Computed example of a mutant assay.
Amino acid sequence: MDTFTRSELAKLVGVNKETLRYYETRDLIDPPLRSRSGYRLYSNEDAKRILFIKNAQKLGFSLDEIHEILSLQTAKKNSRQTTTAKAQEKRRIIDKRIDKLNQLGNAIDRMMEAWERNETDASILAYLGEGTFLSEDL
């Protein structure tokens, strides 16, 4: 089994070495073994877990959600159903964010079109002040 110091592991998985300590305080990774000289020694399993955490974050999962998923994985009690439900809920949240961003983009387009049609020197700030291009749910 390969072992890595904190600096080596941080470089290997592409995180700051303080991130490893933070993950440890959040119980996302187990406390590492120590060498005789006191260095923290991490394993390949630690590297895999950190990559899992980073990939889950890229998908929009918070560290609390990741901790819960990792706990389910360890407990193995209904973990597949619960993890699937969590992924589905995250997808619903992402879809809502996408809808909101599309609405915001459309509102900006409407504002720009209204501003460009105006032949006066009214600033874009005036259009922002009016807010007529915004829908009620923004």
Rank of each mutant, 00 (worst) to 15 (best):
I124H: 13
T5G: 02
T84K: 11
L12E: 15
D46C: 05
P32A: 09
G129Y: 10
I93F: 12
E130L: 06
E113A: 11
A85R: 10
Q73E: 15
Y23R: 14
D109K: 15
T3R: 14
M1Q: 12
L72R: 02
E89R: 06
K54D: 09
L72T: 02
K77D: 07
Q88T: 12
E119L: 14
K77S: 06
L72A: 01
I53D: 05
E116R: 07
L33K: 15
R80F: 13
I108Q: 02
S123M: 12
I66Y: 05
L134C: 02
I69L: 11
W115S: 05
L33I: 13
Y23S: 05
E119M: 10
K77I: 09
R21E: 04
L125W: 11
A10M: 10
R117K: 15
I29E: 03
L128C: 07
D95F: 11
D46G: 04
I94G: 07
L20D: 05
K86L: 00
A56F: 10
A87C: 08
D95T: 12
A122I: 15
Q103L: 10
T83Q: 11
T83E: 12
Y39G: 01
N118A: 09
S37D: 08
Y22G: 10
R34K: 13
S71A: 05
G38P: 00
S79L: 02
I53Y: 07
L70G: 05
Y42K: 01
Y42I: 02
Q57C: 09
Y23I: 06
R34M: 01
T82N: 10
Y127E: 07
E24H: 03
D64W: 11
L138N: 11
Q57W: 04
A47S: 09
W115V: 02
T25K: 07
A122L: 14
H67R: 15
R80G: 09
L104R: 15
A114N: 05
R6P: 00
N44H: 09
S79C: 05
D64Y: 13
K11N: 11
I98C: 00
L104S: 14
L59N: 07
L28W: 03
E65M: 05
Y127K: 12
N78H: 03
M1H: 10
Y127C: 06
I66D: 04
N102H: 08
F4Q: 01
V13R: 07
E130I: 07
R40E: 08
L28S: 00
P32R: 13
R97S: 05
G129C: 03
R40P: 03
R6H: 06
D27W: 01
R91P: 02
N16R: 15
R40N: 11
R49H: 04
L104A: 04
T83K: 12
L9T: 04
H67G: 13
I66C: 02
L51F: 01
D95A: 14
V15F: 01
K54W: 07
S37V: 04
N16E: 14
E24T: 01
T74V: 14
R110G: 06
Y42E: 01
K58P: 07
L63V: 00
G131C: 00
M1T: 12
L51W: 08
Y39Q: 10
K96Q: 13
D46P: 05
W115T: 06
E116V: 00
E89K: 15
L101F: 08
D46E: 09
K54H: 08
